[in-house]
Design a protein around this nucleic acid. Sequence first.
DNA 1: TTCGGATTGTTGACAGCGTCAGCATACGCC
DNA 2: GGCGTATGCTGACGCTGTCAACAATCCGAA
Lengths: 210, 210
Amino acid sequence: MTMSTHVARLVLMSPRNPEPTRTAVLAAADGLLETGGPDAVTLRAVGAAAGVSRSAPYRHFDGKAELLEAVALRTLTDLGAAIRTAGAAATTPRERLRAGCRGYIDYALQHPQHYLLVFGSAPLGVVDPAIDVAADEGFAAVVDLVDAAQSASLLPAQPVCELATVLWALLHGLAQLQLTRHLHEPRTVDGATRLDDLVDVALAAWSPIA
Amino acid sequence: MTMSTHVARLVLMSPRNPEPTRTAVLAAADGLLETGGPDAVTLRAVGAAAGVSRSAPYRHFDGKAELLEAVALRTLTDLGAAIRTAGAAATTPRERLRAGCRGYIDYALQHPQHYLLVFGSAPLGVVDPAIDVAADEGFAAVVDLVDAAQSASLLPAQPVCELATVLWALLHGLAQLQLTRHLHEPRTVDGATRLDDLVDVALAAWSPIA
DNA sequence: TTCGGATTGTTGACAGCGTCAGCATACGCC
DNA sequence: GGCGTATGCTGACGCTGTCAACAATCCGAA
């Protein structure tokens, strides 16, 4: 059985594809997280889903925490890309601001477990510098959004960095309160459509030319 | 040893104090959470800190999840009270709005682990209705804040419930991004003082009479 | 007063978890 | 051909949440 496994791995090992197990392990962790929540991400389950044993991930990651950090890094990169592509699709500055905000929230709602992995709890130890870089790039996307909106007089002329932080906090708050089920009926109505309305409420209230 | 334990328990058992172990267990979970983070909240550690055995909590809570739910309930109640007392201390409407917001953020920063327990991740199963009630009361405090501010023309005249949700999301976003260490140097400056400044930025931008 | 159920606490045990040590195999270079 | 390195596997350890079985206490009814 050991030999057959190795033969199978040999077949998968194409020359352009280095570290296929690392990729498989990461993909397995990704899938388990999204389908079963954080409790489903077990090294044993990850190994099984990736077709390897329970401790094979240790050859590619320094432990469970580092494996989850790699998942978080990819999530953060994807989130930044989601903001930019959503904003780029719009034509007018007003639509661009709205689309960027919706891109952020949509990504969070479509990847709830990944989003909560990144933003839900305090980091356990020292964070991978690459995560900081990815977070900086994501924040830069928000800064660009705010900058363009200020140029079009859609947001007040306050320091762009602070205003971007405020907007980020607002988007994060809306997304996370929704994901943790703290926004529901009598308090506010459920669903993504309603969340977009709340974004509009906030942006309209911020617009200097009310 | 068993008998001496029981004698000690008898001494502690004053007539007006029902369920002292339940209280001790809850307090132990509270302390362990705040000092050691979520990983330190072990039923064995909770039992030891409360002076009982590892499975004594099962007589008062249906399992670890329900114990943490009780901690979350108390946290949510305290948070609502913190908002109200902070707001009540202020004199002018403008100061009252600012004080309420700062009360929210200060409570979150002073009880980071408790705050993240409540708002950090999606609830595992069905939530205790008492938690919903406490969350409703906390939200009502924010609604009152917004209502009074609108009466003083400090916030635009949008539907109070939606505006309160937006403000809640903003406060939650600022607090949580700070707690999860996502706000730091080049992005924005660290510390509670800076966070209060960001609240002022947002409120000033929302103020119709800029 | 006595007795029996209900309440509350204890220990023993079990499966599942992350993690490491030790061993086996395959690859790539000399 | 031979060997170091990389990669994978199993066994084992301590820790966790949880439950079953047992003991002690309290309280209301006879």
